[in-house]
Nucleic acid binder design. Structure first.
Length: 426
RNA sequence: GGAGGAGUGGCUGAGUGGUUGAAGGCACCGGUUUCGAAAACCGGCAUGUGGGAAACCGCAUCAGAGGUUCAAAUCCUCUCUCCUCCGCCA
């Protein structure tokens, strides 16, 4: 959510921002409603002043007849007030509806573009592996080593269901250990194991609702399954005033993640690249309300993730996300994509964005500034690592001609020194 | 799942229809005192929003939403959260 005062004073900036994000939003329409709201509010307030003054009089009058007369007079004032308040209810609900739809203004450095096809590659790292054999995809490799059961996954869980088996499980645990240890060394992150079942407000607060309803699983109790631990983690400090000296607060959050993938029908229907449930370590930062701070930590979060891919020796590239591919609240976003040999392309593994105070305004997360003023903090987040998706890249890049998989060096110590998975004995 | 109890400012805690944004205490900030500190004493101390150059003034806020009333922290309804007891349970 943006500050209405900011919107009033910078209506062109906000409108241009929406345009850059290719989001249909009419700032003028909002401002018309806002004006109505302000006018009605002023009217109601002056009527209430009158009412309050009358109340005071009524209290101080001892003569019963006079008191009755005043009360009768008040009834008229009250009736008028009620009418205005009914009117106001309609206006305010319209206003609120519009307010939560105002897109945050993208940074000046965000490139123009209508959708993901116009994102800009700004960096590549690592050497794309050359195989002297036809590389298999992760499904073939994993099935060949009895590491996955997709058929039974579908039988038990439905479309996009999967079982990881045997070494895949060990590898997965090794990755978690690795990520956790690396990240804990990387900085002052507070490890957090979060709920994955959350209340609606958390999703509104982080900006996943109202727009993203169809991609969320909802329970019969009105709660939702999160698509990322960013949601509970950001909500952790909601409605709080954080002591300024505690900022920045950095979380390394972990949770299962659930996504309906409603907008991705027919995409990546095989394997474990796109699944309905997965696990993710997420980096979340709350910092002072200052653009430079946000930028600084955005780069830091991105570097942390890059470091993990580099240590895993996975070739990747960094994308600067264009306006049309940004979310409602995002100011700027980098995606990291790791190399997938079977498809001969890079595919997304990380997404780093910052929001300024868009989320904290909705979640009411504040701190007291040096000059004693309460301010909404800034928020940012980035993936640390998600499984099983990262397995796709690891397994495909590390595959051997005999169908076995070399284990990335940094993971070996988490797998009892094992250096290779397979090949399967016949 | 059943039966009860509770939710007031940074904390504690009074307040059960009428100058209550809310007593008292603690914490915090300023001052007096002191060589300095502690103690004591004096003063200040919520947030949001509208107006104003400012002083200051209006409105709202006592978990949240709605209702009753001329008037609600106080009465009624629903929701949320917490506590106690019983049942069930990884």
């Amino acid at each position: 959510m943006l500050d209405i005062k900011f919107i009033r004073g910078n209506k062109d900036v906000v409108q241009e921002g929406a345009k850059k994000k290719h989001m249909p939003f009419d700032v003028d329409a909002l401002l018309v409603v806002d004006e109505k709201r302000c006018a009605l509010l002023a009217e109601i307030e002056s009527k209430k002043t009158e009412q309050n003054q009358f109340s005071e009089k009524i209290v101080n009058v001892s003569n019963p007849a006079e008191k009755m007369k005043l009360i009768d007079e008040m009834k008229v004032v009250k009736e008028n007030l009620n009418k205005k308040e009914e009117e106001f209810k309609l206006v305010i609900s319209e206003w609120q509806k519009l307010m939560i739809q105002v897109p945050n203004v993208p940074d000046i450095s965000v490139p123009e573009g209508k959708d993901e096809t116009e994102n800009q590659q700004i960096k590549t790292w690592g050497e794309i592996p050359k195989f002297d054999f036809q590389p298999k995809n992760h499904i073939e490799i994993m099935e060949g080593l009895d590491m996955i059961d997709l058929e039974r996954g579908a039988k038990v869980s439905g479309f996009r269901g999967y079982f990881l088996k045997n070494e895949a499980v060990i590898l997965n645990f090794a990755i978690w250990q690795f990520v956790f240890n690396e990240m804990m060394q990387a900085g002052d992150f507070i490890p957090l194991l979060t709920p994955s079942l959350v209340k609606k407000e958390t999703l509104l607060g982080t900006g996943y609702l109202p727009q993203g309803e169809e991609d969320l699983y909802k329970t019969q109790d009105g709660t939702y399954l999160v698509g990322t631990s960013e949601v509970p983690t950001m909500s952790y400090h909601s409605d709080e005033i954080i002591p300024a000296e505690k900022l920045p607060i950095k979380f390394l959050a972990f949770s299962p993640c659930f996504r309906r993938e409603a907008g991705s029908h027919g995409k990546d229907t095989k394997g474990i690249f796109r699944v309905h449930e997965f696990y993710k370590f997420e980096q979340v930062i709350l910092c002072e309300a200052n653009h430079e701070e946000s930028v600084k930590y955005h780069e830091e979060l991105t570097k942390n993730a890059e470091k993990l891919l580099q240590v895993l020796q996975l070739p990747y590239r960094t994308l600067l996300i264009c306006g049309g591919d940004l979310g409602l609240g995002q100011v700027k976003k980098y995606d990291l994509e790791a190399w997938v040999p079977s498809e001969n392309i890079y595919r997304e593994t990380h997404s780093a964005s910052y929001f300024h105070d868009f989320q904290t305004r909705r979640l009411n997360i504040r701190y007291r500034d040096q000059d004693g003023k309460l301010k909404f903090a800034h928020s940012l987040n980035n993936t640390a690592l998600a499984t099983p998706r990262i397995l796709v890249s690891i397994i495909e890049n590390y595959q051997q001609v005999d169908g076995s998989i070399k284990i990335p060096e940094v993971l070996q110590k988490y797998m009892g020194g094992k250096k290779i998975i397979g090949p399967k004995k016949v």
